[in-house]
Design a protein around this nucleic acid. Structure first.
Length: 407
RNA sequence: GGGCAGAUACCCAAGUGGCCAAAGGGGGCUGACUGUAAAUCAGCUGGCAGCGCCUUCGGAGGUUCGAAUCCUUCUCUGCCCA
């Protein structure tokens, strides 16, 4: 059987491991591991996708994931890598988000038959008694050592509240709790979590005398240094309601050349040999590889049907022929169109521009198109005469499209 | 609790009575070039009933013909002392 650690390493998931040899041998048999998600948003986005893929790989190789949604720690906020204090969250919205996150993860992870567990750390953290916690857990933490950690040192310059300072203890306690209840022996997380994860490993060693492991993922940026999963419009959400599969697909097909191979390894399950082939091509041929990347990632997130449609639509817009149904559309009342609507207003309704002024600028700069014809005049009126096959195709700039249909 | 400093547009950051919708940088958008890539160059980047008007410089009041700029007060943040 392939060793899961090797798989993760080969595909570029591993930034640091606490004890590679120990972990490798632990992974010779099914292992229970955990990863935490922050419940502050209702949907996961492309930034978390890397970690989801890692979990999915491990599960496919026979290991059992515990997904911890940080309902308890979410009420505090992790100071790591943040320059500002986080807003404390309402209890209700955390609970809603926990459900939403579980639903999204189920596209990637099999939650059936004890194959995976989702838990909310509020379950055990909320019950903790302060004195007891200080006595049992607090005594194992050295403030000196915590202060020396880079993550906290940065925060000194801007201030760090006592609540946030305790985050590490709680996360360490999570790990201890999961070790005791589920025999969890590996915690994974972003590289910014390294210190927190190790704190848990240490705590378990001190209290239980047992060896557990830590593994962190690289903090991904694109080749030109931008954060993963951000666009002008905001985050690249995994949930179809927040981001149409077509737009999701577009995000992936627009990645930089230099990222194709790396992303194929991280964000798809394609075998490494095939990936090597796909990323060996050069120049414009790489577009085909990007298409494979975009298709696969979209298929995982939204299913084969949605991915097919997104690909069709992309080909239709950028290549020539194909169905356009997957291009996001907005419905406009037929009567409005009969009377005529200002082109600039239509761009606003379609969400292609943020405001009417923005739309005017777009027209002035020659970036506004209706049915592939540039809009020449700011006062230009769009009517039902502009309908082609029952729709109007708006375009902002080179590659942002939206359909207007009547209803 | 005491003293000091600060809060400016998406982010960083200048501006300390009118020339301020507010310098500069980042980010973003558009155009040229391209391959739905990168790099480079140029323009744009508060809103609207668009040559004008309205809203914005932490909140609320005030002084003034006129305030992001001065005064009062409140909220928040940082630093120093306890």
């Amino acid at each position: 059987m392939v060793n899961a650690l090797d798989v993760l390493q080969e595909r570029g998931f591993v930034e640091q491991v606490s004890d590679a040899e120990g972990l490798r041998s632990a992974m010779e048999s099914p292992l229970t591991f955990y990863i935490g998600y922050d419940p502050s948003a209702a949907s996961l986005h492309a930034g978390s996708l890397l970690t989801i893929m890692a979990v999915a790989h491990l599960q496919r190789l026979g290991h059992r994931p515990i997904v911890v949604v940080g309902g308890g720690t979410g009420m505090i906020g992790d100071p790591t890598g943040r320059t500002e204090m986080r807003q404390l969250m309402a209890v209700d919205s955390i609970a809603e988000n926990v459900d939403a996150i579980r639903r999204q993860l189920s596209h990637y992870i099999d939650f059936g038959e004890d194959r995976a567990v989702v838990v909310n750390n509020a379950e055990w953290l909320m019950k903790l008694g302060y004195i007891e916690f200080l006595r049992d857990i607090g005594q194992h933490f050295s403030v000196n050592r915590m202060l020396a950690a880079e993550a906290y040192r940065q925060r000194f310059e801007r201030g760090l509240s006592f609540i946030e300072f305790n985050y590490q203890l709680l996360q360490a306690y999570d790990y201890l709790h999961l070790f005791r209840t589920y025999g969890c022996r590996l915690q994974m997380g972003g590289n910014d979590q390294w210190g927190n994860i190790l704190a848990g490993v240490d705590l378990i060693r001190r209290i239980e005398g047992a060896e557990t492991y830590a593994l962190t993922f690289p903090l991904l940026t694109t080749s030109s240094g931008a954060k993963m999963g951000k666009t002008a419009a905001g985050a690249v959400w995994l949930q179809a309601e927040l981001m149409a599969p077509y737009d999701f697909y577009q995000y992936w097909i627009n990645v930089e050349d230099a990222d194709v191979g790396r992303f194929l390894k991280l964000y798809t399950f394609l075998p490494l040999e095939q990936i090597a082939e796909l990323s060996s091509v050069e120049g414009s041929a790489l577009r085909d590889s990007k298409e494979v990347l975009a298709y696969e990632v979209t298929r995982l997130a939204h299913g084969a049907e949605a991915a097919d449609q997104a690909r069709e639509a992309s080909r239709a817009l950028f290549g020539g022929q194909g169905e356009r149904d997957a291009i996001p559309s907005t419905t406009v009342a037929k009567s409005d169109l009969e009377q005529g609507v200002l082109a600039v207003d239509l761009f606003v309704t379609a969400g292609l521009t943020r405001s009417k002024s923005d739309a005017r600028r777009l027209v002035q700069q020659g970036g506004a198109y209706v049915n592939d014809e540039p809009v020449q005049d700011i006062e230009a009126l769009i009517t039902d005469a502009d309908l082609e096959h029952g729709e109007i195709l708006l375009r902002a700039g080179k590659k942002r499209f939206h359909r207007i249909v009547t209803g």
